[in-house]
Design a protein around this nucleic acid. Sequence first.
DNA 1: TATCCATATGTAAGGGCTTACATTAAAAAC
DNA 2: GTTTTTAATGTAAGCCCTTACATATGGATA
Lengths: 382, 382
Amino acid sequence: MKLLQSFSCFYIIFAVTAFSVSIKELLYYFVISPTHIGGVVKEHSVTIYDISEQAGVSIATVSRVLNNSSNVSEATKKKVLNAIKDTGYTPNAFARGLGLNTMKTIGILAADSSDLYLAKAIYYFEEELRANGYDSLLCCTGYALKDKKAAIDLLISKKVDGIILVGSNFVYPDVADNKYILNAAEKVPVMLLNAELEGNNIYCVSSDDYKSMYKATGELIESGFKNILYFYNSLSYSGALKERGFRDAMRDAGISVVERQLQFFEGTREDVHGMAAQLEKTASAGLKFNAVIAADDTLGLSAVKYALSKGYKIPEEFSVIGYNNSMLANCSEPELTSIDNKLETLCQKLTSTLMGVLSGEEMPKKTVFSGEIVTRGTTKAK
Amino acid sequence: MKLLQSFSCFYIIFAVTAFSVSIKELLYYFVISPTHIGGVVKEHSVTIYDISEQAGVSIATVSRVLNNSSNVSEATKKKVLNAIKDTGYTPNAFARGLGLNTMKTIGILAADSSDLYLAKAIYYFEEELRANGYDSLLCCTGYALKDKKAAIDLLISKKVDGIILVGSNFVYPDVADNKYILNAAEKVPVMLLNAELEGNNIYCVSSDDYKSMYKATGELIESGFKNILYFYNSLSYSGALKERGFRDAMRDAGISVVERQLQFFEGTREDVHGMAAQLEKTASAGLKFNAVIAADDTLGLSAVKYALSKGYKIPEEFSVIGYNNSMLANCSEPELTSIDNKLETLCQKLTSTLMGVLSGEEMPKKTVFSGEIVTRGTTKAK
DNA sequence: TATCCATATGTAAGGGCTTACATTAAAAAC
DNA sequence: GTTTTTAATGTAAGCCCTTACATATGGATA
């Protein structure tokens, strides 16, 4: 039996080679045919040609029906629509995109889409974009520069109509490092959330992190705290603003700041325990602090955790202010005072700006919203 | 001056119409040229033709270099790569996709990408997919059926190679409502995370939520709690499993359950205060409970909040178990015992299954992982 | 009735890429 | 030195749409 099979197989190959068809081609057609994908045999998919044939019209007419173009009689329209329904036809977005050079897609870049704040931003963007007929291509890049570059190239090759950089860590202090954004902006509009960068075709929407942090620090000082620790985990553009806000507020209050009073946390953004541990370590290394102002709610929460573990009375003996006013602020006990930077507003504004740019309107290159301190249990009420 | 302008403009139109160019065409070329997009004049973008010219080779060779195909001499390769670098060429993914009928893109559908758990899942998927050379098209659908349908159609017309449905709320109790998934699966493989559905080209990866909940309830009972409130906010597939796990565990322990002991929370998934308020209301309506088992960490956290507000000693007088073992579990004080359903493992498995399916391998239609109770401060250690 | 238009439909040319097949040049075998 | 093989490159067709322009058809206008 086995022998017979081999034989007949050989026979076929022989017969075919007589017609000068290569074995490779043979394999191609009979074995590794690319129409066999995903476990389903993809029957040659339905195209406008099939529709045009079935409806007895030209492909141009079909296309016109699909695009709701003018000058198609009701009768033909009906015929075409029926044919579409019968065949279950879906237009091929590639072919369309190739012709139109747009796929109505916006690339969204975020370092980490699971970060509470960024996730929220992505959600708002996706929602707004969809409402405007655009889709979102999501790329999470991590925090390394070269991955960000690669992701942008990829988005551009996918012909996105615009790029949104979610979060300030796309803009670097060193100007040269931002070249990759300028390059991208030569091809499509680039939108920055919570970061600023001058450049043609670059638009920025951000919250005034400097002012927010300056004000928050000021409030802590006013309510009697002088030994304030600044706790941060990002060297981003807005990170720098926040830090400056803290420093300036301290300086303006005549309080000097030693460097180790600014604590950088290197671990992951969710590691509440690690954060609390770092505060503990800092304290036992001799630094005295009875208040923490954090660049992020998670950091703020860890400070609450630390203070509770030390038995401090919050907010009388120990105060904490977080940043972003995320749901986390409601989770600790006492609840966390936090700076709300109006994320939803920012995202809406950014999207509408992008839409304006895409339709050729003149749009503001820079929009800044101011934040607001939401007072909860970790600071004294004024 | 104004007049002069008008005049010269008229002159041009006249001159051109003499060559029989329509006004429409004129407008097309001079005013609404589609090459003028996003405020930047999109110079006719670089194609392989430009590269081939500059490198002095054929387009086929350029393509071969781009695809790392065999049989290109080092010398030509270098020439081509230089030309690419010089021109800043990026391949047009549409054209590529049109030929290959794939854009190496997977559609990710989630009801709400800002939900802590779903966001994490999306993050893992994005990461895994990228590692496999695929991109992610993200659609957030909300929780309404018809929006889910529309989103799927959209993804299919964008020729995604597969679809991942993140979260169990894509599968409905009523079989007829799931037709839309079966339809999608006729075109591309559909992957379900934390849900199950029989069907050709549908693959499910989930955690054993029934067993986890059964076990967790059992532990609460064993440590002496009988008045357990089940707190949930989702009527999803896995939601039903969890509920059954709870009910069966109670029944098997000989404890009868009244319906209002199962509390459904209708508000948003982040509204910790609303959740706590509902527990408060339930208690003051006369239901006695000294333990809460929650279908989600946020719900669990709200129970901790409630218990603290009542002055209960946790975990001795009041115990809580959450679900998902998210970062929230580390945020409360005491920290929340929670069920870890191995999200990362699930996502990895799901992605690798999808990759297998896409390359034509036979893959398991259903994979189930069991969860694990991570004991923290809201339950007594065993 | 002859002329002109508006409306409805068709024809064909891209758009940028991949790839089977054809061709050429160089190396290996004779 | 001639023939065969192999490696390197080129040619051209096809992927499925959109749309400018050409054509056909009927009705309104002169």
